[in-house]
């Protein structure tokens, strides 16, 4: 690869990283904490390419640069053209809806969470609900909850309120799924807020799946950070 073309490729890669970090689109792919790393790396790359152009005018000898560098244009192409969405129902359908047994169940929002009985359905993350509904049945029984997630349809009219959990980036995205009973499935990938009562988990060969008897379904806009 010629050196000036290499500079161009690096500027585009750097600009793409800066654009991801400043626009918030990066939240589709990585954790919020990566923002400053992305921004810094993008700026370093742009600075590298620009200095190279400025300083090189003094130099005569030119080395060939690795041809592998052309491959860097593939992710740039993917971002510009495909515009990959955040992980959704398709990724969730590839996983089992069964919630793994937690090492040690953590109280969702401190001790006060369960004490307060007054104001209707309790908001809970899909991640917590999918674990608690299966492994802490006694606490959950008879209570109402409010969950926000997207719709993952399955066979025979079954559908799940779903959130994807990230630990690092989308490569390790884990789907947390709650079977929604008593209401027809909204469109695939539609973001919704549901309220309803805890229901007995569904038995499957690989384990139990959390369930909720849904009373209300309200379509909502996708949150800025789609992951939990």
């Amino acid at each position: 690869m010629k050196r000036n073309v290499a500079g161009l490729v690096i500027v585009f890669v750097g600009a793409a990283m800066v654009q991801l970090a400043t626009s918030g689109v990066y939240l589709r792919y990585v954790k919020p904490g990566m923002r400053w790393m992305l921004l810094a790396a993008g700026v370093v790359l742009i600075a590298l390419a620009v200095t190279d152009v400025v300083v090189r005018s003094r130099q005569t000898h030119d080395h060939g640069l690795p041809r592998a560098a052309w491959l860097l244009l593939i992710p740039v192409f993917a971002l510009l053209v495909v515009d990959p969405p955040a992980l959704g129902a398709d990724a969730a359908q590839r996983q089992s809806p069964v919630a793994a047994k937690p090492a040690k169940p953590v109280d969702p929002q401190g001790n006060a969470y369960w004490g307060d009985e007054s104001h209707g359905p309790k908001p809970m993350t899909v991640r917590d609900y999918s674990v608690w509904a299966v492994w802490e049945k006694e606490t959950m029984q008879g209570r109402s909850f409010q969950l926000t997630g997207f719709v993952t349809p399955a066979k025979n009219g079954v559908w799940y309120v779903t959130r994807i959990g990230l630990t690092c980036c989308v490569a390790d995205g884990t789907a947390f799924m709650v079977e929604a009973r008593g209401q027809a499935a909204p469109a695939k990938n539609q973001w919704i807020t549901v309220t309803g009562k805890w229901a007995e988990p569904t038995k499957r060969v690989d384990g139990d799946v959390a369930a909720l008897t849904v009373e209300t379904v309200k379509p909502v806009a996708a949150p800025a950070n789609p992951y939990e």
């Binding site: 990066y26 990585v30 990566m34 810094a40 495909v82 990959p84 969405p85 590839r94």
Partner: peptide, 30 residues
């Protein structure tokens, strides 16, 4: 690009793949 390739990359599987691919790259590049 988006207008030119409109309708090319609509398959759910391909889009999930693209998200994973961009995600791993974006995570590793810094």
């Amino acid at each position: 690009g988006r207008r030119l390739f409109n309708g090319w990359f609509t398959d759910d599987g391909i889009r999930t793949w693209a998200t994973m691919f961009v995600g791993v790259t974006v995570q590793a590049l810094p």
